[in-house]
């Protein structure tokens, strides 16, 4: 019961933050609303007893990616450009598209038979994730490292200050 109440409150919070991200007039505020959205999703993961996913969500999305976004905004835009105007003439098309996408996703997810179990979440989930990284999923694990390497080289190529 308590869990459901908390879920509803958090869901409302997350959706509100997401809406704020879309309609906020200042780009910096939109980024902060995005941080709120990420935090809400992290709390939803906690409610699902997926601790590792929750902390990863906070560390990677809030700690790294949102910081990067906020930072890019700080680098490229003055605070004095007050109204950047998130709403333009095509807002109704975007809203319609979003509603359609939501309907399609809801339909799809309701059709998928998810494997469920009533058993409690095992205590050593993180150790299991870890041993599967180097066991069953070793190829994706190594591919991730290549992907990160490529991302890093790309970042260096793009962001390096060129001289001469």
């Amino acid at each position: 019961m308590v869990q459901q109440v908390v879920f509803i409150l958090i869901a409302i919070f997350t959706l509100g933050m997401a809406l704020g991200t879309v309609i906020s007039r200042k780009l910096f505020h939109a980024a902060l609303f995005l941080v709120g959205t990420f935090a809400g999703v992290a709390i939803l993961y906690v409610l699902l007893e997926a601790e590792f996913l929750a902390v990863s969500q906070v560390i990677v999305y809030i700690g790294a990616i949102a910081t990067l976004i906020v930072f890019a905004i700080m680098l490229s835009r003055s605070m004095m450009d007050k109204e950047s105007g998130a709403v333009n003439k095509q807002w109704w098309a975007a809203a319609g598209g979003s509603v359609l996408l939501f309907a399609a996703l809801a339909l799809l997810l309701s059709k998928v038979p998810f494997a469920t179990t009533s058993a409690a979440v095992p205590d050593d989930t993180i150790a299991k994730i870890g041993s599967q990284f180097v066991g069953v999923y070793v190829i994706p694990f190594e591919v991730v490292s290549v992907l990160l390497l490529v991302a890093m080289i790309g970042a260096i190529m793009l962001a390096r200050e060129r001289h001469g």
């Binding site: 700690g63 790294a64 990067l68 930072f71 680098l75 150790a127 870890g130 990284f133 991302a151 970042a155």
Partner: peptide
């Protein structure tokens, strides 16, 4: 200077790397 941004990008990569290494360390 754009170099601040470069460091932030390198940080993201290493942050994700650490996230992958923690479950491995536990297991």
């Amino acid at each position: 200077r754009a170099q601040y941004y470069l460091f932030a990008l390198i940080f993201v990569v290493f942050d994700i790397e650490a996230m992958f290494l923690f479950p491995f360390a536990v297991a």
